[in-house]
Write a protein that binds this DNA or RNA. Structure first.
Lengths: 182, 182
DNA sequence: GGCTCCTATATAACGCTGTTCTATAAGTAT
DNA sequence: ATACTTATAGAACAGCGTTATATAGGAGCC
């Protein structure tokens, strides 16, 4: 039941964006009465929070699956996977970062999101250990990288791209960043 | 009348965020009946679009006012001014980029936003002309810079900063970016 | 000046939203 | 088999954006 509600919400999200997720639409799509959302998730925000967590888990898996010949290549590959995930799940990505602004999320949910960031920190740390990035605070550098890739993805999803080849521009930004951090 | 409605909307936006902007609340705050919003702006989206345009105009002014001893310093200073603007007007900044996703804006409104980007392109172009950045497509490079600073600002506004000193981290990201583009 | 027409504003209503309340059905333990 | 707890269904409430209707005000003309 709780899974079917989540599935229904994801379907509606993919199909019609955030606004098409309403308590009634999700419940109907899952073949349940609206009250089902409240008994399972407390309220609509609880349902959105579950989507938030699932989104970060999937994002983390996408980053983790990236590979490469050396630590810096794996970092770069993970960042490209980050972009691929966002472009493949635009509405989910939007929801994940909008909820961060609007909802006050539970400690557990925030930790799930931080775990994803932790993966990025590890990759940065590995690259530093391999001498491929200048040694400094790995969390700080990971934050800088995340800033850049999140911005690139956000503007691309918003349709604000003045580049003819967004993927190439994204890669070029990433390379400039990594060169500057070397 | 149309100015007082805009002022009322800005007041409510600053005070309570995007959700506190409702047709009724804005009209009441401006001492007008709800219908006034429709006669002046067509509908609520028209009002939000007016806020969007005004936001980009103010952002452009903030970037333009930045100065420095050379072209690269002026570019960097403009980026820092970009961050200052966003932190000083968090809800307005959120609205500006959310509307880009949700509303389909008029051609004129989009052009106003593009003018702001044009200022950034000019600063990049100047830095290239002065030999302080590697010569390449200025629009493409400006996009990369915008990606990075928008991401940094967005995550900071969302409260997703694992750095102890966000301003320093933002500056470090910017420097890494500019070094990589040299 | 008085009358007509047009425009703009106010009021009420419609359909939608999230949420809550009440009553009914189902399932379990004794 | 009965009693009690739990979950579900349905209606109802306040708020939202929007629309339709009715009323007031001002401009143009005789």
């Amino acid at each position: 039941m709780t899974a079917s509600l989540l599935d229904a919400a994801q379907d509606l999200l993919e199909e019609g964006g955030i606004d098409s997720i309403t308590v009634r639409s999700v419940a109907t799509h899952a073949g349940v009465a609206p009250m089902g959302v409240y008994s399972r998730f407390g309220n609509k925000d609880g349902l959105l929070e579950a989507l938030f967590v699932e989104g970060f888990d999937r994002l983390q898996a996408a980053i983790a699956s990236a590979s490469g010949p050396d630590a810096l290549a794996r970092l770069r590959s993970g960042c490209m996977a980050y972009r691929d995930f966002a472009l493949a799940n635009p509405h989910l990505y939007e929801l994940m970062f909008r909820q961060m602004l609007e909802l006050e999320l539970s400690a557990e949910s925030l930790e799930r999101a931080e775990q994803t960031f932790g993966h990025l920190v590890s990759r940065v740390s590995d690259a530093m250990a391999a001498g491929l990035l200048a040694r400094s605070d790995d969390v700080d550098v990971a934050q800088q990288v995340w800033n850049a890739i999140h911005g690139g993805v956000s503007l691309e999803l918003a349709g604000v791209t003045f580049s003819s080849d967004p993927e190439r521009t994204f890669g070029a930004m990433l390379d400039a960043m990594l060169v500057g951090l070397r």
